[in-house]
Design a protein around this nucleic acid. Sequence first.
RNA 1: GCUAGCGUAGCUCAAUUGGCAGAGCAGCUGAUUUGUAAUCAGCAGGUUGUGGGUUCAAGUCCCUCCGCUAGCUCCA
Length: 666
Amino acid sequence: MLKVKLPDGSEKSFENSVKVLDVATDIGPGLAKAALAGEVDGTVVGLDYNLADNQEVNLKILTKKDADALGVLRHSCAHVMARAIMRLFDGVQLAFGPTIEGGFYYDFDLEHSLTDEDFPAIEAEMQKIISQDEPFERIERSREEALQVVRDLGQDFKVEHIEEGLAEHPTVSFYQQGEFVDLCRGPHVPSPKAIGAFKLLSVAGAYWKGDSNRKQLQRVYGTAFFDKQSLEEHLARIEEAKRRDHRVLGKQLDLFTINPLVGSGLVMWLPKGAMVRTLLENFVRDELSKRGYQAVYTPNVGRVELYETSGHYPYYSDSMFTPIVMEEDEKYILKPMNCPHHIMIYKSRPRSYRELPLRLAEFGTVYRYEKSGELSGMTRVRGFTQDDAHIFCTNEQVADEFRGCIEMTQFVLKSLGLDHYRVRLGFRDPNSDKYVGGEDVWQQAQDALVEVCESLGIEATPEPGEAAFYGPKADFVINDCIGREWQLGTVQLDYNLPSEKRFGLEYIGADNQTHRPVMIHRAPLGSMERFIGVLIEHFAGAFPLWLAPEQVRVLTVSEKSEQYGRAVLQQLREAGFRAEGDFRAEKLGAKIRDGQLELIPYMLIVGPRDAEQGTVSVRDRIDGDLGAMPIADAIAKFAEEVRERRVRQTYSGSAGLGERGAANEY
RNA sequence: GCUAGCGUAGCUCAAUUGGCAGAGCAGCUGAUUUGUAAUCAGCAGGUUGUGGGUUCAAGUCCCUCCGCUAGCUCCA
């Protein structure tokens, strides 16, 4: 007797083992037709999955309404793509073709270099395969038989994978569709007709089994949906991300520039970008001093010996700039991190337990020689400034300090409208002995991390084995307004640098004995470069009033009102606003257009009428014309918005700069 | 670093597939004096990323280097 529990709580019994599809049929012909896959006790399976007799299982029939079914569909689409590519090109070796967030990919090795010019032909062939509607059939074979199958097919990667990756599996499965047979765990949708819409997106290199020492393959990315509309929405989101690209907006809005003559990955902040950064830094500085941090400054270089003591050199020399050699025994490196310098401040005199926790903060600029292919705009660079601080404390103080760090990060993120994030907790791998510091101390710290996140209502996922060798960590992963994830802030415990082997840090305890402090590295924003890069994309360049490089612009209706306009501008500046004036002999419409495209939060339009009555006509970047009001009222309105650090909008269309005939989106 | 693609005026892009480097915007000059998303006219702007090669002729074809983009790998 087989008992099947359905999601609505009802139960069905079967005399013998049945397939998932049989259960669906038993429930109703409509469901059987709509069924794409099943979920048995939480595992997604195909409709042909056999539910064995003499057990009780939870079963959910998946249709296109279920998110999990989409993954199954996309994997099937990856097979269709592989089949199409094998039809069109000779000597195609198949590697892996999994589903990923937003779509799928398949890795191939073939003579021909695929480009996106090949996509139309491949897509046409895929469409043909889908129209033919041949079913995906699962075939199970013993390892020996399977090896023979893939050898006969001449699929060398699959042979290797069965021999090595699947060495533990007594049987393996294949899926066959027409002439196409592929080693595959499955499941698949019953037939390709469920693939309502698909598109190939890009092609790029990828290493076999992710190993840069192994062969490089060609990876084709694509996506698929049940219907055309979902595909179009997805493609629109991709376009949306492109429009928000901080590299494009950074250029259009004069925020930063990167020049090969200065060097790749080295950012120059233009006045407007520098203003945003200064505002953000000042905001963080205020917060740091409220939270008991002390500001310090340290140099940009340090002797190689400092980093030998810290253990960074030569271990990480690959990602450091080459040392500056003055004399044989006098070498300096551009600092790749601030902690050794901060440690020397700690060590500048004996420390008492009464001083702890000692919190040393610095916007410290560091240099890391990232490989050329890693560089990207402001988000991956070779020189960057961390909003860094190092906390020296006792083991007992760790939990409170963690809490403080996480609360501060929460506060900062909230002030910027970054409301969606999670915390990744990097914990020790219980089976490894690479870690510094006692197991009990680690356990205590890890427990504290979990507890702090829970009590603050933060979604935190422990990831064993993801800790650095020197201590557990908490990384903030921010979700921006279009759902992309960015790793920004971090809090990391360090048992290594204070240790005897490294800097041998000490403090005198209440017991008059020497003790060893714990160190916490923390940076709520991470780096100014990356954080502001992400902010640019998050706001699509339209910064909230408190962060906008130019907050208000005074526009004169004609040159006749210039004198009044300049007086208004003067008042705004005296009230502390970053204001400019547009007194050109252009028509008002042209000035407004320029202001909108430059994403200026407020424009104050002044003409003869205003000059007469002492008013300004306020134009809001988002809501448009707000009508005339006394200057003092406008100033009070802006001041309140700044004081509250109000985030009114994270996105409202493209900046549109440089695009002729672009639709008006504000 | 690897694979692939790309590099033309400050920006966005043309240039008959090897045959006189061009347009819009931005800039400058002048006219216009305007009330909520582009006033008109003129001017100027280039060693086509770099260095070499093939050719009567190279933006276009070949090679070198530099840079950018996508992805892979990496990220103390």
